[in-house]
Amino acid sequence: MQPFSYAPVADAAAAALRARAGASFIAGGTDMLQLLQENVLQPDELADLNGLPLAGITEEADGALRIGALTKLQEAADHPLLRERHPVVAEALDATASPMVRHMATVGGNLLQRTRCLYFRDVSTPCNKRQPGSGCSALEGENRHNAILGGSEHCIAVQPSDLPVALVAVDAEVLARNTDGAERWIPVGGFHRLPGDTPEIETALKPGDLILAIRIPAHAARWRSHYVKVRDRASFAWALCSAAVALRLDEQGRVAEVRIAAGGVATKPWRLPRVEQELLGHRLDRDRVRLSAVWASEGAVTRTGNAYKAPMLQHTVERALIELGGLA
């Protein structure tokens, strides 16, 4: 680890001041410590955000749930209102990392978790995300875990977090504060950016921006929802593929509203509008589910090691819908 200075900050204004002086933020630290250990990040200064009053979940007047950015993943997963109203989010958190990591990591930090692409984390190899212009080693290298959707010729790294995939399904927003103190809401679906030719820019945040909270709107409580994660072992592993589904059936049992997002397969949480469209207005039966899920991998670009993800994505979406619909 390279030397850095450290100081806790007491409020958002102090955080902004340190960010302007070049500090990086640390909260739960579970990803930051790995990136420091491997010399992927070499900050001059760390500003510790844990003193800010941003932990906890509250219900807003209109019924929305507001999750403070410093809420630990385990604390969020255990929250009764979150579990009752938004199972997809609780299930995604349950399936995240290990109990130890869930006691440390924060929901705000989880949105900013960096990719697990082998080459991003290995400083001896070229990587456009870590070192812009150096090239992408994954295109022709070990790419079993890399993206089949949303990639570019510069980067096919997967955004690895489970939580934002579920948050896209429940139409959540992120509250960010810039260094001037101005706050703005960003839909989670628009929070992460496609790599394009600037894979080093990963989110809609500007330097020094601070995540304050995540908000799940009241209308999402109308939806039944479910998260399915497929991985190499039964627990404590990154998603090879995941599907987050939220939907409402009308009185005739037809799909009246539906939002579906995929994880583990794309450079950002990946909304599946064509699958949603194929389901809308139809009864949720096994044939309709299968015919709709086929569209999940539309537009996929596969490489030597990750072609398996295209059928896996279709089947994961199909399974999530079957389980949610009680069709098994």
């Binding site: 630290g29 510790d48 990591v101 440390m104």
Partner: peptide, 10 residues
């Protein structure tokens, strides 16, 4: 917690 992923100062 895993003590390897936490700075002692924290």
């Amino acid at each position: 917690v895993v003590s390897c992923l936490m700075l002692a100062v924290m």
